[in-house]
Structures are given as structure tokens and as C-alpha cells.
Design a protein around this nucleic acid. Structure first.
Lengths: 225, 225
DNA sequence: GTCTATAGGGGGATAGAC
DNA sequence: GTCTATCCCCCTATAGAC
């Protein structure tokens, strides 16, 4: 850091704000992170966030978009590739699951910033703020639609409601696992903050998800076995 | 509500604050819920929270404790009963899972307030606040220890780390399913807010969890099959 | 373009009247 | 015991100087 520096390029300032904001949002949550904390840590002026992004809400959306857009894009590419390889036949459920969950797990395993982002994203699903909810609905609309359709084609005998429930459970297990909830970490002793924790987790999670997806459906009386 | 009423008994005020706070925390989150919102909705004075609970943080803990203590108590009772029925032999994994997850699912299915509390609790796991994290660690210490031990006895061939990961995944799937994350609800069309949604979900979730628990372990190369 | 200074609106907590 | 009035803090956003 050059102490004689008096200004940054517009792009440098933007990126620096996004990086710092992501770290602080991940560590403290959206509400508990103030613009003063962000601009202070980033070494930029308090007014810079409003100048570059318009508002704190817009900054939140920009932080999420930056990695979520490419993430959901590669999910769709993976499904495209799997469907092309299947040549018109339905794609196997295990391949669909792998296509959906590989990208986020690779992102989380690839770098500190990637892991940080996935922790943030996992927590974002449980934010009650309408602004966040609307944002996620828009961002996930296409990818969820594509995968729902793929599952329905792969499992024509299973009612669509059952498929949606299982997709919901799988998303929950992944979100929580990646968010690496500190409480559970302390309780169970599973270290989710070590650099290679995600590499060790990914195959275990994938196995768990497939096991859940393949579990026998409960009978009409709610009994499982 | 009697408009002529000028005061409430201390106990009535306390309970009313707890009920209203739980509803607002569930709807808006802890940070976004102000003491003014709570005391306003409860029809009590602004100073009442500090008088009865000491601080907003203490109120948060009290709201959580009120139902979490009985919840974890009945989890331990269920495990005690299962171990007594097994007469010294290890309890079957499916019975352990059922013992752990029946109580929260029944609470969520039993009443509007129970569902509201479980939604709140599900979100609480992802709160980054140290105060919340410390609170949860303390409250879950005993019950997690008991269940970890039971799983280890039931599955002596499985490394303890694998068991802890699966427990972590199961807790995540349940938390998210019960929190009924609005975003996922909108995306998947699964209605989690209908009165009987929890009754319909419970057997499906239990089946999913057992399927995940029983999934084959990934090999040393990370391959599943 | 960048930053300083400040407006304007909550927030949690509490002293002191009743 | 209960409530009113208020303290003092920090927040976001912006007008206007540089």
C-alpha cells in the first residue's frame, strides 16, 4: 500500500469495495456491516459506495451477482453438456446432481475468496429481507427451471412434488454444509475453516445427497420401512 | 383487549413480549427487529423489555430458550427410552435419527407458534453474531454429545469423522427444510407456509435423511460409485 | 471525480417522575 | 413497579466544496 497515493482508479476502487464488502458481509452479516466499516477497511471515502453503487442495497446485490452469475451459468453449461452426451435420452439423476453441485463445491474449494463467497451465499438463503428474497428468486429462476425439468424427465414415475421436496432438502444440506455454520462446527468438531476442508467435504456431501435422492419414498401412511 | 386496562401483571407482560418478539424475529430477523417494534406490537411500554429482560440480547436468548430447552430435553428423553429398549445393545441408526428429528418436526407440525419457532431456530443457526453462536454452543452441548456417542456405538466400523459430517448434513437439511426459506419456496413451488405443510414434509424429510445416512461412503479417490 | 461535512432518522438504554 | 422523556450513539444518504 503506497501511503503517498491520494486516489485510485474508478475500477480499482469498485473492486476493492466489492472484495472488502464480501469479507465483512460473510463475517458479520448484511445488517451488522455498516458502510463505515466497508469504506474504512477498503481505505476509500465514505461516499464512495454511494457514488459507485448507488446504495448499500445495490452494493449487496452487486457483491452477490459478481460470483452468482458465473456460478449459475456453469450449472446450466454442465446440464447442457450432460444432455448433449445423453443424446436425447433422459440424463441420469446422479449426473444431474453432480452437474448442479459440482460448481459451488469447486468454487468453495478453489480459493479463500471462493469459500468466503459460498459461506455468504449459504447464509443469504435464510435472510428474511424482501430485497434479498426477490433478488434470489430472479437470479435462480432459470437454473432451477432447467434442473426441475431434467429431474422430471429422469424420474417420470416420481411425482413432481416429491422431486421438488428432495431438491429442497439437497439445497438445504449443501447450503448449510458450505456455510460451515460455526455453531455446528464447534459442536461436532468438524473443522470447516481449514483450507482443504471443502475438498474433503465435497465427495462426502455428494454421496450423502445421492443417498437422500435415492431413498425409498414414504408410503401413504408416512411409514418409511 | 380492554381499552380501559391500564396495566398488566408482570407475568402477562413478560409472556406477551416473548410471543410478539418471537413473531417479529421470525419475520424480520434479530437485527431488523427493534425494541420499538416489539413493545409497540405488544402494547407495552418501551422500557418494559429492559425492565423484564435487561437488554435486547437477553430477550433474544430468552425467546430461544423458552422452546429450545424443552425441545432438547425431549430429544434426550427419546434417546434414553431407545437405549433402555435396546437393553445395552447399540441403538439402530434409524432409531437414533428418528429420536433426534421427531421432536422438532412435531413441534413444527403442532401449532402456528411451533412452526414459527422452528423457522426462527433454523435461521438462528446461520446468524454470525458471537452472542448467538455462544448461546447455541452451550444449549446444544449435551444433546449433541449424547447423540454423537450413540451414533459411534451404532456404527463402530464407520470413522467418527464420517459420522460427524453426516450429522452436520442432516442438521443442515432439516434446518433449511423447516426454516422454509421463502426463496426456495417460491423457486420450487413447494408451499411451506400452509398449515399442514410440516405434516406432509416430516415423513419425506425422515426418508431423505435416512437415505443420506445409509449412502455408501466415498472411496479414498473421492469416487462414489 | 473525489471527499468533507452534515442532514435526518432510527437505534438501545436509562434517569427520574409517578 | 411502571412509564415518560431524553440521552447519546451510529446509521445511510447527500449537498456542496475542492
Amino acid at each position: 500500500m503506497d501511503a503517498r497515493r491520494t486516489s485510485l482508479s474508478a475500477n480499482e476502487t469498485r473492486t476493492r469495495i466489492l472484495d472488502v464488502a464480501q469479507a465483512l458481509f460473510a463475517a458479520h452479516g448484511f445488517d451488522a456491516t455498516s458502510m463505515r466499516m466497508i469504506t474504512g477497511d477498503a481505505g476509500v471515502n465514505l461516499a464512495a459506495v454511494n457514488y459507485h453503487f448507488g446504495s448499500k442495497d445495490a452494493l449487496v446485490q452487486e457483491v452477490l451477482k459478481r460470483h452468482l452469475r458465473p456460478l449459475n451459468g456453469s450449472r446450466i453449461q454442465a446440464l447442457d453438456a450432460a444432455e448433449a452426451a445423453a443424446g436425447g435420452a433422459p440424463v441420469k439423476p446422479s449426473v444431474i446432481v453432480e452437474s448442479f453441485f459440482s460448481s459451488p463445491l469447486e468454487l468453495a474449494a478453489g480459493s479463500d475468496a471462493g469459500r468466503e463467497f459460498m459461506r455468504l451465499l449459504g447464509r443469504t438463503f435464510t435472510e428474511p429481507s424482501p430485497m434479498i428474497r426477490d433478488f434470489l428468486v430472479t437470479e435462480y429462476e432459470e437454473v432451477i427451471g432447467r434442473y426441475r425439468e431434467a429431474f422430471c424427465r429422469a424420474l417420470p414415475a416420481v411425482p413432481v412434488e416429491e422431486i421438488l421436496w428432495r431438491l429442497h432438502f439437497m439445497l438445504g444440506a449443501m447450503s448449510h454444509a458450505v456455510a460451515g455454520v460455526d455453531s455446528l462446527q464447534v459442536l461436532t468438531g468438524v473443522k470447516v475453516d481449514e483450507p482443504d476442508a471443502m475438498q474433503r467435504m465435497a465427495p462426502r456431501l455428494m454421496s450423502f445427497l445421492l443417498g437422500g435422492l435415492r431413498a425409498p419414498l414414504p408410503g401413504p401412511d408416512g411409514r418409511i420401512e
